[in-house]
């Protein structure tokens, strides 16, 4: 009985405490850089698309809200022909970013994506692709991959030897 009255009293005293509510549109909260919000596609340091359309983000997505189709450019680079994220389904879990082997897909601290029409929550590649490297700087997947692309022949990648000559018997 006393404890009930005590708790009533303590709850009553909360009336005089400081409010914790942030008055959102006027006041903005601090969002840490690794906050998981809107998803973007980034570019490598040379300004080329980082995404190589490997489908790993799509398969990692627990709500299956990422769809893309791979295509290959004349220079040998693979890229997504289309890249679609249905944000009305997205749960911002960040698994896609974790799965991405090229740092292409990144979640950024932006959550203000409300729409009056749900259809507008479907983002295509032109809405996702940004002109920058996002959170991770300096990485260019093709410099590490063994694949030959225009401007990088076999053996010119990082940690690669010159191509072997199968006709030589030298060690």
């Amino acid at each position: 009985m006393i404890s009930i009255l005590k708790s009533l009293w303590y709850v009553f005293l909360h009336m005089f405490r400081k409010r914790v509510t942030v008055q959102y549109p006027e006041e903005k909260n601090y969002l840490p850089p690794r906050w998981r919000g809107r998803i973007v596609l980034t570019r490598d340091p040379d300004g080329e698309e980082r995404c190589v359309a490997c489908y790993l983000c799509a398969v990692a997505c627990p709500v299956d809200c990422i769809a893309l189709d791979a295509a290959e450019a004349d220079d040998g680079r693979r890229y997504p022909d289309f890249f679609r994220i249905n944000f009305s389904r997205c749960i911002y879990c960040g698994y896609c970013e974790e799965a991405c082997p090229t740092y292409a897909i990144q979640l950024i601290p932006d959550f203000e994506m409300a729409e009056y029409d749900r259809q507008n929550m479907v983002y295509e590649k032109e809405h996702l692709l940004i002109n920058g490297e996002g959170k991770y700087h300096g990485y260019n997947f093709y410099k590490y991959a063994g694949l030959e692309i225009k401007g990088k022949a076999k053996g010119e990648g990082i940690d690669e030897e010159k191509p072997i000559d199968p006709k030589s018997l030298m060690p």
Binding site: M15, K18, R19, T21
Partner: peptide, 14 residues
């Protein structure tokens, strides 16, 4: 309205 405001008041909200 009163109830929601009061509950908020006692929970450090608005």
């Amino acid at each position: 309205w009163i109830e929601r405001r009061l509950l908020a008041l006692w929970q450090n909200r608005y």
